[in-house]
Write a protein that binds this DNA or RNA. Structure first.
Length: 514
RNA sequence: GGGGGUAUCGUCUAGCCUGGCCAAGGAUACCGCCCUCUCAAGGCGGAGACACGGGUUCAAAUCCCGUUACCCCUACCA
C-alpha cells in the first residue's frame, strides 16, 4: 500500500440507540476489515451528545453485539486508549476549548438568538417560499452589545463563520469528488446554548484528535461532510479520507428501523444465527470479493477487502439469503462448537438436563450432527430434533393420509416392531439389514416400509436417514412408538381396515389431474 | 423549495473507470429434473434485469446530455 499514512486508524461511532442493527453492523465490519487488511487500528467511539437520546438508551447492547460478532476494537470506552475518553459526553472540555479558540481567531462567534426567534424566521421564510439561511445577526455584534445580551441572560450558542463564495468539494473514496455550492451553507451552530457540541462539530474535532485517517460511514453522512470540512478548515486541521458506503434499506426501501421486524443483531443471535454468517451476509451488502465466492470466512474477507470494491447503490437486506448463508456456515462449522451453541437451547426446552452426563451429551451431540445438515439456524436444529428427546404430540396429518391410511399398514408396523425387537446389535447397519430383508420377504419396496415407520417413530415425514433415526432413538423408544402407531391406526383409523376389506382406495380427495 | 447521491434479474451483485470478449455472469428465492427411504445438502436445467429518451461511435450496460424514480442533507438530532 502506498500513499497511506504509517498507521491507519478508523473508527465506528454509534450513538446509544439500545441496539445494533444490521446496517450499523456492516459499517462497523467495513471499518474493521479495512483496519485488519491494512494493519490499522479500529477505534470505537460513542456519540452521545444528544441529551434526549442518550438519556434512556444505553451502549451496552451495542458493545455486546459487536463483541459477539467478533468485531473487536483496540481503543474504546471500555478498554481506553491513548486518545480517550472515547465517549463524547466526556469530552465537552475539548469541544469548548476548540470553540473558544475559533472565537478568538474570528472564525466563530457567540450567537444570542433564541431558538424561538430562529423558528419564527424560518417559518416566515417558508411561507414566503424562500430558503431560510441564518442571516448572521450576531456575527458583527460589538463587545458592548454582547455584554448587554449576556446580561439579559440570553442563551449563548456558538456559530461558525460560513464559507465565502465558491464550492466545497468532498473527495470521497467511493463517490469520487462530490461538489457542493457554498451558498448552501450558512453560519451553522457548532455549540448549543447548553454547552454541548453539535454533531458536525464534535465528529470533526474527535476524528482529528483521535488521529482518524479514514472515515468510513453511511452515505447519509455525505451531505454533512462539507460542513465538517468547513470545521477542519477553520480549526486548521488536515481532514481524513472519506468513504461513504451505500445505505442498507428495509425490504420496503425505507430506512432500517425496529418496526421492520428483525433488524437488530441481537435478535438474529436469539434466532440462532451464527456471527460469521451475519458478517458474511452484511459484507455482501454493498461489497463483493471480485470473484464468484459468496460463502466467506472472516479471514477470507480480510484478505479480499478493499474500499474500491464497495458499490454505490443502496442495498435492501433480505433475510432469506442471510438464512441460506447461515445454513452454509452451520454445515461448515466445527461440530463441537455447534453443539455447545445448541446445548443451552436444548436445556431451555427441557430436552436435555442441565447436569447431563457424558452419555447423554454424546447422544445429544450425535442428534445435532444428524440434524444440522438439513436446517438453517440453531433454533431449527432444536425444532428438528425434538422427537429424539421427547414424545411428540400428533402425527403429521398429511403424513397420516399418505402413509397410515393404507391397507395392511398396522400389520406391517407390527412386524417391523418384532424385527427391531430381535435385531442384534441395535445399530443403523443391522436394523437396515433387517428391514431390507423384511421388504424382500414381503415383496414390497423399501419406501413402503420406511415411510410408515418414519411417521410412527417421529410423527413426521421428513428427517435424517431412517436408520440413523432408529439408532439414535434406541430400541426401547422405537418399540414403544411402533406400538403406539399400531394402536393409533386401529383405533383412530378403523375405516382403513374396512376400506381394505371392501377393496377400495377410500376417499382421498384426488387432484385435478395433470 | 434548495443542494447532494444513486439507478443491471423480486432481492444481493459481476461487468462500467480502460466502449467490442455481454444475444449481460454468479448468488438467493421460485419452478422442473437427477440423486434418494423422506426432507435437506449436492448436481443439472428453466424463468427472470442494463429505469426512460436523446446523442457520440463502425460498435454503448459501459462515454455525454436530459427526464423520471428513490434516498440523504437542508436542526441549538446524530
Amino acid at each position: 500500500m502506498q500513499g497511506l499514512p504509517d498507521q491507519i486508524r478508523v473508527r465506528f461511532a454509534p450513538s446509544p440507540t439500545g441496539y445494533l442493527h444490521i446496517g450499523g453492523a456492516r459499517t462497523a465490519l467495513f471499518n474493521w476489515l479495512f483496519a485488519a487488511r491494512n494493519g490499522g487500528v479500529f477505534v470505537l467511539r460513542i456519540e452521545d451528545t444528544d441529551a434526549d437520546r442518550a438519556r434512556e438508551e444505553t451502549v451496552g447492547p451495542i458493545l455486546d453485539s459487536l463483541r459477539w460478532l467478533g468485531l473487536t476494537w483496540q481503543e474504546g470506552p471500555d478498554v481506553g486508549g491513548p486518545y480517550g475518553p472515547y465517549v463524547q459526553s466526556q469530552r465537552l472540555d475539548l469541544y469548548r476549548r476548540e470553540a473558544e479558540r475559533l472565537i478568538q481567531e474570528g472564525k466563530a462567534y457567540p450567537c444570542y438568538c433564541t431558538v424561538e426567534e430562529i423558528e419564527a424566521a424560518r417559518e416566515q421564510a417558508r411561507r414566503e417560499g424562500r430558503t431560510y439561511r441564518y442571516p448572521g445577526t450576531c456575527r458583527h455584534l460589538t463587545e458592548e452589545e454582547r455584554r448587554r445580551l449576556e446580561a439579559q441572560g440570553r442563551p449563548r450558542a456558538v456559530r461558525l463563520v460560513g464559507p465565502g463564495p465558491g464550492e466545497t468539494v468532498v473527495p470521497d473514496l467511493i463517490h469520487g469528488e462530490v461538489r457542493f455550492p457554498n451558498d448552501e451553507f450558512d453560519d451553522f451552530v457548532i455549540m448549543k446554548s447548553d454547552g454541548t457540541p453539535v454533531y458536525n462539530f464534535a465528529v470533526a474535532v474527535d476524528d482529528h484528535h483521535m488521529g482518524i485517517t479514514h472515515v468510513i460511514r453511511g452515505e447519509e453522512h455525505l451531505s454533512n461532510t462539507p460542513r465538517q470540512l468547513l470545521v477542519y478548515r477553520a480549526l486548521g486541521y488536515e481532514p481524513p479520507a472519506f468513504a461513504h458506503v451505500p445505505m442498507v434499506l428495509a425490504p420496503d426501501r425505507s430506512k432500517l428501523s425496529k418496526r421492520h421486524g428483525a433488524v437488530a443483531v441481537e435478535e438474529f443471535r436469539e434466532k440462532g444465527f451464527l456471527p460469521e454468517a451475519i458478517l458474511n451476509y452484511t459484507a455482501l451488502l454493498g461489497w463483493s470479493p471480485g470473484d464468484d465466492r459468496e460463502v466467506l470466512t472472516l479471514e477470507e474477507m480480510v484478505e479480499a477487502f478493499s474500499l474500491e470494491r464497495i458499490s454505490k447503490t443502496a442495498a435492501i437486506y433480505d433475510v432469506e439469503k442471510m438464512t441460506w448463508l447461515n445454513g452454509q456456515h452451520l454445515r461448515r462449522a466445527d461440530l463441537d462448537r455447534v453443539f455447545a451453541l445448541v446445548r443451552p437451547r436444548l436445556e431451555a426446552r427441557g430436552f436435555l438436563p442441565r447436569d447431563a452426563g457424558p452419555e447423554e451429551l454424546a447422544h445429544a451431540r450425535a442428534v445435532v450432527a444428524a440434524v444440522r445438515d438439513r436446517v438453517r439456524t440453531l433454533e431449527e436444529i432444536v425444532d428438528a430434533s425434538a422427537y429424539f428427546f421427547a414424545d411428540f404430540e400428533d402425527y403429521d396429518p398429511e403424513g397420516v393420509r399418505k402413509r397410515f391410511e393404507k391397507p395392511g399398514v398396522a400389520e406391517l408396523l407390527a412386524e417391523a416392531r418384532r424385527r427391531l425387537e430381535a435385531v442384534e446389535p441395535f445399530t443403523a447397519e443391522s436394523t437396515e439389514h433387517a428391514f431390507r430383508a423384511l421388504c424382500q420377504e414381503k415383496g414390497i419396496s423399501g419406501g413402503a416400509l420406511f415411510h410408515p415407520v418414519r411417521l410412527a417413530l417421529t410423527g413426521r415425514t421428513m428427517g435424517p436417514g431412517l436408520f440413523d433415526v432408529i439408532a439414535l432413538l434406541g430400541r426401547r423408544r422405537c418399540l414403544e412408538r411402533l406400538d403406539r402407531a399400531v394402536r393409533f391406526i386401529k383405533e383412530k383409523l378403523p375405516h382403513v381396515q374396512a376400506a381394505a376389506a371392501a377393496g377400495g382406495d377410500a376417499g382421498t380427495e384426488g387432484g385435478a389431474g395433470a
